[in-house]
Simulated scan of single mutants.
Amino acid sequence: MAEIRYLRAINQALADAMAADDSVVLLGEDVSEAGGAFGASRGLRERFGPERVIDTPISEAAIAGAAVGAALSGLRPVAEIMFMDFTTLVMDALVNQAAKARFMFGGQRSVPLVLRTPHGGGLGAGPQHSQCLEAWFAHVPGLKVVCPADPASAYGLLRAAIADPDPVVFVENKALYAMKAEAPETMPVLEIGRAATVRPGRDVTIVAYGAAVHTALEAAGTLAGEGVEAEVLDLRSLQPWDEAAVLASLSRTHRLVVVHEAVEAFGVGAEIAARMADIGFDELDAPIVRVAAPFMPVPFSKGLEAAYLPSAARVVDAVRRTLA
């Protein structure tokens, strides 16, 4: 085991994928000479050359369009969109072209591209640089969506996304970039669509993804002091999501809380709650509770932003509600 930062794990995954496959190329704003807005591609231009690590104009629509064309032409592009808020400008290429190509061409063509983009608050970046829009993409047939919570998952899921024959939206919470955690020196490639139990428990299941996993773990620690053992599942993959793992956990604990940083209304948690209320109804001993952001833009003020984001205290309160 060795300690590694989340951002370094992403950089390592990109480097290893590029070394293993000459068809893997990177493109985006400032990804080449500057090494990316957050440093994810630092050093890759020097190692693989500017023809494979490509700076683009400031046009997210152009980046996405070029990535779709490159993927249809036999390359495996990894396109970086600097903030998830700016994916509003990639929707036609990603949703109408990349996601539909396999279907439109009768299965004869695929679009093996990855769109990397950071989401989330906590940095005081305001309402146009902090949104969590992953539910948009999880709603689109033909797209896969993943959101790792730790360095090993970031590495393993990014390698899997790059190898996947279909388009994958790879979501990174920028508040996790500096996070350090132990990981195997040789990190494995993970399977898209598989959740991980990061804390076992018997009294309640807490399902989360991305930075919310750490909020859930903090809450579980507090609850343990009260004699409540919460099982925490890191969803990792949002589309497809590990319905079987959530149901199996629910069948052990009989209570469910879903946590995510995105707005609660019409979010990933709503889909999980709806499915478990259907296929897991007989296992439920209490209503399913969601803990997420309110229906409003992310505040710029640090104090307001802290109140906006789901907290461990809110998760603890939600669990108490299910146990009452």
Rank of each mutant, 00 (worst) to 15 (best):
M1S: 14
A2E: 13
I4N: 02
Y6L: 11
L7T: 00
L14M: 11
D16I: 12
A20T: 10
A20R: 13
D22I: 06
S23H: 06
S23M: 00
L27A: 12
L27C: 11
E33M: 12
G43L: 09
L44G: 06
R45E: 08
R45Y: 08
E46T: 03
R47F: 03
R47A: 15
F48K: 02
G49C: 07
P50D: 10
I54R: 07
P57H: 05
E60M: 10
G65L: 06
A66L: 14
G69A: 05
S73T: 08
L75T: 03
L75G: 02
R76Q: 05
V78P: 07
A79S: 04
E80G: 02
M82I: 09
M82W: 02
F83Q: 04
F83L: 13
D85C: 04
T87H: 07
T87C: 13
L89F: 15
L89M: 15
L89K: 08
Q97K: 07
Q97I: 15
F103L: 11
M104I: 14
G106E: 06
G106Y: 05
V111G: 06
L113F: 04
L113T: 06
V114Q: 05
P118G: 05
P127Q: 04
Q131I: 10
C132R: 08
A135Y: 02
A138V: 04
G142Y: 01
C147T: 08
P148K: 05
D150L: 04
A161R: 03
P165A: 05
P167D: 03
A175R: 12
A183Q: 06
A183L: 04
E185T: 12
T186M: 03
P188I: 05
V189F: 00
E191T: 15
R194Y: 06
T197K: 02
R199A: 09
D203I: 00
V207N: 02
V207M: 03
A208Q: 10
Y209D: 07
G210P: 11
H214T: 09
H214L: 10
T215I: 09
A216W: 02
E218Q: 15
A219E: 07
G221I: 00
A224M: 00
G225E: 03
E226D: 13
G227C: 11
E231F: 00
E231M: 04
D234R: 05
P240W: 04
P240N: 04
W241D: 08
W241C: 05
E243L: 14
A248Y: 07
S249F: 04
R252K: 15
L256Q: 06
V257E: 10
V258N: 12
A262W: 05
V263Y: 03
A265W: 14
V268E: 02
A270P: 04
E271N: 12
A273Y: 01
D282L: 15
A286L: 09
P287G: 10
V291I: 14
A293C: 09
P294F: 09
P294M: 13
V298L: 05
S301P: 04
G303A: 14
E305L: 11
E305H: 11
A307S: 14
S311K: 10
A312T: 08
A312V: 07
A312S: 11
A313I: 01
V315K: 01
A318C: 04
L323A: 06
